[in-house]
Design a protein around this nucleic acid. Sequence first.
RNA 1: GCUGAUGUAGCUCAGCUGGUUAGAGCGCACGACUCAUAAUCGUGAGGUCGGAAGUUCAAGUCUUCCCAUCAGCACCA
Length: 603
Amino acid sequence: MSAQYIHVSVAWPYANGDLHIGHLAGAYLPADIFARYHRLRGDHVLMVSGSDSHGTPITVEADKRGTTPLAIFEHYHERFLQTQRKIGVSYDLFTHTDTENHHQVAQDIFITLLERGHLYKEKQTLLYSESEKRFLPDRYVEGTCYICKYPYARGDQCENCGNLMDAIQLIDPHSRNNPDDKLIPRESEHYFLDLGGFTEQILAYLAAHEHHWRPNVSTFSQNFVKDGLRGRPITRDIDWGVRVPLEGWEDKRLYVWFDAVMGYFTASIEWARNIGKPDEWKKWWYNPDAKIYNFIGKDNIPFHTIIWQAELLGIDGIYNDDDPVYGDIPLQLPYDVPANEFMNIEGQQFSTSRNWAVWLPDLLERYQADALRFYVARTFPERQDSDFSWEGFLARVNNELLAAWGNLVNRMLGFAFKRFDGAVPAPDELTAADREIIAATEAGFDSVGALLEQVRLKEALEETLSLARDVNAWLNEREPWQSIKSDRADAARSVYAALRCIDNLKILFAPFTPFSSQKVHEMLGYEGQLFGELNIEKYNEETRDHLALVYDGGKAIGEWKASNLQPGQALRQPSPLFTKLDPEIVEQERQYLGNERVEREIV
RNA sequence: GCUGAUGUAGCUCAGCUGGUUAGAGCGCACGACUCAUAAUCGUGAGGUCGGAAGUUCAAGUCUUCCCAUCAGCACCA
């Protein structure tokens, strides 16, 4: 099969706090495993994401700390870069939404939609807070229900009588956070994206992809459309965000969801510019053979299966007017949106306000990146919510990753290194059993590959692990530690076969645990990097500059194919792949949950 | 309330379009082995599939009702 063009679009985190295990489990790790697999396959992978610099969560956080939104997002953006570099999320570009490029493309998209009649204006009456100097979302509003007179009705619904309501109908509306803050109705004009106009196209799109999407994503999206698509406002009365590129709209900004969701597109363009090939992004976005995969959490499904598609349909042909290569090709929509469910923590729902969360920077201080990647991948919430528990982490790492795979590597590399003069033994003819076990691990390139291809990552990892167990079982039959005493040639056969298997497993495990696979690669005596490097780069634009995480695959030599390990190859001194975890960590880690967290520097 | 999902061995989960004695890993018990971070390998004991009714020659797998848990229900992205 010739190399495919694979675009890996990864959900954009809000830069208002550190990354946690939910980010990793929901989108980043699945995306990275998928991307690394395709890189090993030799496909053209473009994986992009970035920090969402705009939106109320960031302004709220800034107010709380008495600083600016810019300071908040820059602080967390930088931490995102360091954290993801450490855990190895291999973005070709992880940028943010406060770049000149993003602002420019977002405004171009707005104008394109406007000119083509996909936007309309409407006046809304919203509740305005004088003290906060902003319009308050309905859910932050409280007041007396105009039907049942319940005094604590929310802006969207009265809990007492159950009626859905409009916040402006409340009697005596005030801010939930600050009851003394009287709210006044104020009229404001906004642009809306006319989603209803895309209904037919979206339904056709959903139907066309139904067979290969996850059922929950597909069903949810179809029902969402069938309920009727209403216009969504895409501008807001705030001063932090992308300017609305129209006269008279200077005090408004593009609504954050509208500018953030297009980041997949804007970041692709930035990436192309950064590498000095400004049209390179079209190889994914205007290539009918390319496949765009959008990795997100379930809370984001409608935005990525309907609304983003509507935007793309609405701007078809943008930046592509008279392109000699791609001119007649429509802008590509995502091929798959493999949304994950949620990962709970110790049986309870994740919550930042209660600090019921597991923070990645903290974890990376204490544990190996691959151990975390392995456990999270092993418990991916692919079909339903799953649970992160410290007991589970301990058990999976010690009893599976370390026992089945790490130990296999350690026992055989150690044996070969000691008993065969630090080199891969040179066997004469392999036995049938030896050839079989090698063939079994080689078959993994097809079976595991097929699962990865379908984004069935949990199953792919399970299959890989099972192959490692098969090798352990076969080894116990062959017992080279016995034959070495009487029949050195036979020991050479089985040890050689074992090393071949390990060499295969090294690649099969590599998308999941890239750091330890690299270590195996080196201990087996090879040179070079299986994957490229992740670097933090600074990019200068005309009026500002920004930091980004960038994958450089130039030196990567890893390939998704069977081992061709040469007899006689010099091995390197082996050492254990994984650190065995002390059972005491379970109690220690639980202490952190629910208690105040101090943000530490990432080293 | 509406919509959707989930409820399978002690634990974490597989079971596609209904079909032989319901599967895996971990944990547990017993045994083997000792190259290995007491890791590995083998054997075994554990579920009648949330509850009830129904369709069918046949249901964990389809239908209805009930119970429990979770998510969404539009301006929170």
